[in-house]
Amino acid sequence: MSNARTTILSRLTSTRPDLPQEQPVQSEQEIPAWDLDQRIEKFSSRLRSVRADVIVAEHEIWPEKLATLARQRGFENLLYAPHGPLGGQIEKAWGDNPSLPRLISHQKEIEAWKEELFFQIDAAITSTRAGIAETGSLVLWPTVDEPRSYSLVPPVHIAVLDAKDLYASFAELIKIEGWRRGLPSNALLISGPSKTADIEQTLAYGVHGPIELIVFLLR
C-alpha cells in the first residue's frame, strides 16, 4: 500500500505540467455589503423558498413561541440538549406544563439509545453557530452536547439562530472565523429540509434527513 503511495507520488512529481494558463484571480470574491435587515430578509426568503419555516422572534419570547408551536404541532416529544446553549431557556418555558411535549435528553453515546433516536423522536432542537444570508444556510458545528445526529435523524429539526451571527456569504464566514486554522469533527451547512429530484427531476421533500426544518431567527 505504501508502495502505491510512492509510485503515485513519484509519477506526479516526475512530470510537472506546464504552469496553468489560468491563474486564479488573486482578488477574493466580493462580499455583499448588506446591513442586518437585508441579511435577515435575504436569509429568510432563501430558506422559505425551499420550504423551511423561518420564525423571526425576540430574544426573550422565542421559548414561548417554541412551546406554542410544539403544542400546536402535536409533537409527543422534543429532543434537546439540557447543557447546550438553549437548555436553560427551554426548561424554563416548559416548567411543569403537562400539555407540552415531553422533553427528552441523553448524555450517552447514540449507540445506547439508537432505536429511540431513529424511531421515537418527533423533533429535535439545536443551536446554530452562524447563518449565511446569501444562500439561506445554517452553520452547525455539532458539539458534545448537541451531537450531529440531532439535526439529521428526527423528522423535524428546529434550529435557533441569533441574527447577529448572520454572515453575508460563506466566503465571509470562513475568513472572519478563520476556518483555515482547523475544523471540528463535523461542520455543516444546512439549507432547508432534506429533498430530492431523482424521480423525473421533480422536487420532493423529506428523503433521508428531516422532513421539516423550522428556524427561530432571533433579533
Binding site: R46, V50, H106, Q107, K108, E109, I110, E134, T135, G136, S137, V144, P147, R148, S149, G182, L183, P184, S185, N186, A187, L188, L189, I190, S191, G192, P193, S194, K195, A197, G209
Partner: peptide, 24 residues
C-alpha cells in the same frame, strides 16, 4: 449541476468521533 443556489447539505468531515463526542 441542478440549478439550485446551494444544496441542502454541505457536509465537512475532519475527524472520527473524538473522546466525549456522542456520535459519528
Amino acid at each position: 449541476a441542478t440549478g439550485q443556489p446551494i444544496t441542502t447539505y454541505f457536509n465537512m468531515i475532519s475527524s472520527p468521533r473524538k473522546p466525549g463526542e456522542k456520535d459519528g
